[in-house]
Design a protein around this nucleic acid. Structure first.
Length: 417
DNA sequence: CATAACATGCGGCACAAGAC
DNA sequence: GTCTTGTGCCGCATGTTATG
């Protein structure tokens, strides 16, 4: 059987073969023939029966013969129930609720009253089926413990919701296989589109998405060679700016703590850091420390900060690392920023609540979400032709956790008298 | 204009028929 | 008896068409 029947290929209902002794086939035939099936056979309702059911002819599905009211049948009320209670056609209910055709006066009031009385909520799966468009879009991010991803999901949900869509949200926990599984489950739900923040090894997931017809927008990290629309921010420039600001304050020993060195964004940040170091003309050491988890970071950062000479400024790649770094610095009885400065990519809500307040690279989260939504919507509506790549700017916000390094501030005090 | 009737969308499932 | 293939039902909301 073809996956889709076109109107040309679809068999007329009357012409369908009724198989005996298949009870359901007979029932179907009875329905199509517009005469009630024998009483001992199951009856199929369907909208064709609605008018007669609405008029109380007593012809309808078996379940329609159950006691009236949703509580009696323990199923969610359908548009048919609303129509029957209001004494109008199903199409009229649809027209009232969707405003497709104006329905006035008493009928409209009866429909709205029936909706309220039954607590009717349109079935989105059925709507999607009929409209050939899923009202749900998927967003897949590595984790929501990172403030940036949490904010991204929140902003995207808000924007998509304003557009009449719902968001199904999955997490990959930075594991390639989980990422593939989670995205596969989104595809099984036939979401209308997918926004993906890819992990370090996204090829299987991206291959799968490329083979599906689902519109995709890749966010935050690039996916070269796949032709997906992309929304990123300029990590290289952001890191270059941050590094230049630190060097400008007198820092000469920098430590960049990352979760995954392999990530494209991490590579870009490292490049930005090196560009700034080269451009400064000063003798600056810039080390990279790769830590998979927060506990590992606390241990290894403690080791790094006992080195002689120790780093004077630490840059971390996200908010959970920022919290772990603060703990490590405190545990070592070091002072931030007097002994070591701290700057984080990502701006958690607590950045301005802690002491010292946290310096950050602020990602344009809301703009990223809005742009991702616009691109996805364009793809879902079939209006997109060429691949779009949008790169937004991040902003370095220096607060109390960044200051001149110990030696530089001593010299500055001496110069100042 | 308002309404009723009908057709349609998709995929899982049950079932019949045929092949082995 | 088992497996494969093909057919049609079922769920539900809504767009389209015919009718009053």
């Amino acid at each position: 059987m073809p996956a889709t029947w076109t109107s040309a290929s679809r068999k007329p209902r009357m012409a369908r073969k009724a198989r005996v002794p298949s009870g359901r086939s007979v029932a179907r035939r009875g329905s199509c023939g517009r005469s009630p099936p024998p009483d001992h056979l199951p009856r199929r309702g369907g909208s064709a029966m609605v008018g007669r059911a609405a008029k109380g002819s007593g012809v309808g599905r078996k379940r329609e013969q159950a006691p009236e009211g949703p509580m009696a049948t323990r199923r969610a009320p359908t548009i048919t129930d609303v129509a029957r209670l209001a004494g109008v056609a199903v199409g009229t209910v649809s027209n009232v609720l969707n405003g497709t055709v104006p329905v006035g006066g008493d009928r409209r009031d009866r429909v709205l009253a029936a909706v309220a009385q039954l607590g009717y909520r349109p079935n989105m799966l059925a709507q999607g089926l009929r409209r050939r468009r899923s009202p749900v879009v998927g967003i897949c991010v590595p984790r929501t413990s990172v403030a940036y991803f949490a904010a991204l999901v929140e902003a995207f949900e808000e924007i998509a919701s304003d557009g009449g869509y719902h968001v199904m949200h999955v997490l990959t926990h930075d594991a390639a296989e989980l990422e593939r599984q989670r995205v596969a489950s989104l595809l099984r739900y036939h979401v209308g589109g997918v926004v993906l923040v890819p992990g370090a090894e996204p090829a299987p997931t991206l291959d799968m998405l490329a083979q599906s017809d689902t519109p995709v927008v890749v966010v935050d990290r690039t996916a070269r060679g796949y032709g997906f629309d992309e929304v990123t921010f300029d990590n290289r420039a952001a890191m270059r700016d941050a590094t230049e600001r630190l060097i400008g304050l007198g820092h000469r020993r920098l430590l960049f703590v990352v979760r995954r060195r392999k990530l494209v964004v991490t590579q870009q940040r490292i490049q930005g850091m090196r560009q700034a170091v080269r451009g400064s003309g000063a003798e600056v050491s810039a080390e990279i420390l790769e830590c998979a988890e927060e506990q590992e970071l606390r241990t290894r950062l403690a080791v790094a900060l006992t080195a002689v000479p120790r780093p004077t400024a630490v840059i971390v790649s996200n908010s959970t690392f920022a919290a772990a770094a603060m703990r490590a610095i405190r545990a070592m009885k070091l002072r931030c920023p007097d002994d070591v400065s701290l700057l984080a990519f990502d701006e958690p809500e607590w950045a301005e609540l802690v002491s010292p307040t946290l310096s950050v690279v602020r990602q344009p989260t809301r703009d990223i979400a809005r742009m991702a939504w616009e691109l996805l919507l364009r793809r879902m509506r079939g209006g997109a032709d060429q691949r779009q790549q949008v790169e937004l700017k991040a902003q370095v916000v220096l607060r109390d956790s960044v200051a001149r390094p110990p030696l530089a501030s001593k010299r500055a005090r001496q110069r100042g008298g």
